[in-house]
C-alpha cells in the first residue's frame, strides 16, 4: 500500500541537495585530515603516508605551551561555567513561574546572541582598566572571559534535563524525611549528573575553540592553540597546522559523541 503521508524525501531535488550540503560541509575537513598525513607539503598532491607532521607539532615548544594553556583555560572555564549554569538551571526550573522569567532566560543566554566581537571589545576595555589598576597580567582574564561565554552552552543541556525530570521524585524525597539539601544531593544531583557532564563537555569544547574573544583579551605570550594556529597560518601554511587541527577534531568528536550518549533519552 502506498504511503501518502508527507515525506521530505519525495520533494524534487532532495537527494541532490542533501549530497551537495554534505560535500560542502565535510569535503574541506576531509582534505585537511588527509593533508595532515601527507608526506609532501602541498595539499594538492599525495606523496605518501606519514606521521611526521604530528611528531613535528608534538616537538614544537610553542605548540606545547599553547596546548597546555588552552587545556588549562578550557578545564577551568568548563568547571566554573558549569557550576554557575547548574545553579542557574535549578533556580529557573525549581520554583513557581515568576514575572520576568523570560527576561532572565535571555540574560543567561546573552552570550549566544550578542555578537562575539562586541563582547570581545567590551572585555578588552574593561580588563585593560583592571590591568592598569592592579598590574595583574596573568591567565585570570582569559579564564574569566571563557567562563562567562561558556555559561549558556552548559546551561541549555542542564536545564533540558531538569525539565525532563519528574518533579514528584523530589516531592517523594521530602516526604521520606529528606531535608531540601539532602533531596538535592541524594535525588536531584544524581539524576542531573548526565546533564551536568554533557554541559561541561560542551563548555569545554566551546572554550577550546574560541578565537575572537581570546585574541582581544590575551596579553603578550598568552597564545592558546587556536590563536597560535591563526598566527602561524598568516605566515605560511604548514601541514603541522593540519596535524594539530586533526587532533583537535578527533578530541571534539570524542567529546561530542559522549555528549550525545549522555543526553540521549532513555527509552
Amino acid at each position: 500500500m502506498a504511503d501518502r503521508s508527507f515525506s521530505a524525501s519525495r520533494l524534487p531535488g532532495f537527494t541532490a541537495t542533501a549530497i551537495f550540503v554534505f560535500i560542502a560541509l565535510y569535503l574541506p575537513i576531509l582534505m585537511l585530515v588527509i593533508g595532515s598525513f601527507n608526506g609532501g607539503e602541498s595539499i594538492g598532491a599525495w606523496q605518501g603516508f606519514t606521521l611526521s607532521w604530528f611528531a613535528k607539532a608534538w616537538a614544537n615548544d610553542h605548540v606545547k605551551d599553547a596546548t597546555i594553556r588552552s587545556l588549562v583555560i578550557a578545564s577551568l572555564a568548563a568547571v566554573i561555567s558549569t557550576t554557575v549554569a547548574t545553579m542557574a538551571a535549578i533556580a529557573t526550573t525549581r520554583r513557581r513561574p515568576f514575572r520576568g522569567q523570560t527576561f532572565i532566560y535571555l540574560m543567561i543566554n546573552q552570550p549566544l546572541m550578542v555578537p562575539e566581537i562586541v563582547t570581545a571589545v567590551a572585555l578588552l576595555i574593561f580588563f585593560a582598566s583592571i590591568k592598569v589598576a592592579t598590574g595583574y597580567q596573568g591567565l585570570g582574564y582569559l579564564i574569566a572571559a571563557h567562563s562567562a561565554f561558556c555559561v549558556p552552552f552548559a546551561y541549555l543541556p542542564i536545564r533540558a534535563r531538569l525539565e525532563g525530570m519528574d518533579l514528584t521524585l523530589e516531592t517523594a524525597a521530602a516526604d521520606l524525611y529528606a531535608s531540601p539539601w539532602l533531596t538535592f544531593r541524594r535525588v536531584t544531583l544524581p539524576l542531573l549528573l548526565p546533564g551536568i557532564i554533557a554541559g561541561m563537555m560542551l563548555a569545554f569544547v566551546t572554550s577550546l575553540d574560541d578565537v575572537v574573544i581570546t585574541l582581544f583579551v590575551k596579553s603578550a605570550g598568552q597564545d592558546t592553540l587556536p590563536t597560535y594556529m591563526l598566527a602561524q597560518v598568516r605566515r605560511q601554511i604548514s601541514p603541522e597546522i593540519y596535524a594539530i587541527s586533526t587532533v583537535l577534531l578527533a578530541l571534539t568528536i570524542v567529546l561530542l559523541t559522549l555528549f550525545f550518549i549522555l543526553t540521549r533519552k532513555k527509552d
Binding site: D166, T168, L169, A172, V187
Partner: peptide, 9 residues
C-alpha cells in the same frame, strides 16, 4: 504516589 515516584537511580 499515583506515579509511584520510585527513584530510578
Amino acid at each position: 504516589f499515583q506515579s509511584y515516584a520510585l527513584f530510578p537511580h
